[in-house]
């Protein structure tokens, strides 16, 4: 009963937000070019549905590939950092420094390096999504309870057994906390990539409609981006629920680092 009313309340917040938007735009007579009301955005989205759908696909591909590259390389490097002192001491300062850089600023450079199209988008998405995975996963793997590893030692466990039975499951909440940050960053990366170096994709549509002052289409594209982002995020949450026991309770232990 309580949960139900909370859900209803949460839905109300969204409804009030869009209703207020609609009403205020009409009351204050704001020009649609500046800020179209939600109703006109919906109409534009419907009229341009084919254009939007066709352009959602390349954005989706760029996000997903960039994200997967980031996760795969980030995970492997995190293992290196956690298990090799040399790798840790050599690479950690570099990673921390690189993490602070505004990587988005490299987007125009990647246009020069990788040309126009899919590659620069994937590279930017992967580059900014990479750091949370490395840093958080390494933190998870190195924060394993030392006595648990001693317990495994007392049983005569191999290094592989300690990794698969203790360290890896221990690091999972940290890993998933990182994935949730990384997927949102990958979306930002892919869209910025499309701003500067693409002739297709939702980022391109946003850019192009900006130039043609079609603010309604621009908002419609932003809505598509948001829906895509939420869906990808939910996929990760679902995977987390499946893999991490007590996902909701344990996540508090693993604070994610950007």
């Amino acid at each position: 009963m309580y949960r139900l009313s909370v859900a209803a309340g949460q839905a109300m917040v969204f409804i009030v937000f869009f209703a207020a938007w609609e009403v205020l735009v009409h009351l204050l007579q704001i020009k649609p070019v500046i800020l179209p009301p939600p109703s006109r955005i919906a109409v534009s989205a419907w009229e341009n549905r084919e254009l939007l759908l066709v352009n959602t696909w390349p954005t989706f591909v760029a996000i997903t590939l960039g994200f997967l590259y980031a996760v795969a390389t980030g995970f492997v490097i995190a293992i290196g950092i956690a298990y090799s002192r040399i790798i840790r001491e050599l690479t950690y300062p570099f990673l921390v420094a690189a993490q602070i850089l505004p990587k988005i600023a490299f987007a125009p450079l990647f246009l020069i390096w990788f040309g126009f199209g899919l590659t620069p988008k994937i590279v930017i998405a992967a580059l900014i999504a990479f750091f949370p995975v490395v840093i958080n996963t390494a933190k998870g793997l190195t924060s394993v309870d030392k006595e648990l590893l001693q317990y495994m030692d007392s049983l005569g466990a191999s290094g592989w057994e300690k990794f698969t039975k203790i360290s890896l499951p221990w690091a999972m909440p940290y890993f998933f906390a990182a994935l949730k940050i990384s997927i949102t960053l990958a979306i930002v990366g892919a869209v910025v990539g499309e701003f500067v170096a693409a002739g297709e994709g939702l980022g391109y549509i946003i850019n192009a409609s900006n130039i043609s002052l079609d603010t309604e289409l621009m908002f419609a594209a932003i809505v598509c981006m948001s829906v895509l982002g939420i869906l990808l995020f939910l996929v990760i949450v679902a995977a987390e629920r499946l893999i991490v026991v007590n996902a909701q309770d344990d996540a508090s232990g693993a604070s994610a680092t950007m």
Partner: peptide, 14 residues
């Protein structure tokens, strides 16, 4: 060696 540590040291995910 069967070892009972001072803390239970169970695996929280099992």
């Amino acid at each position: 060696v069967g070892y009972v540590f001072q803390r239970p040291l169970l695996l929280p995910w099992r």
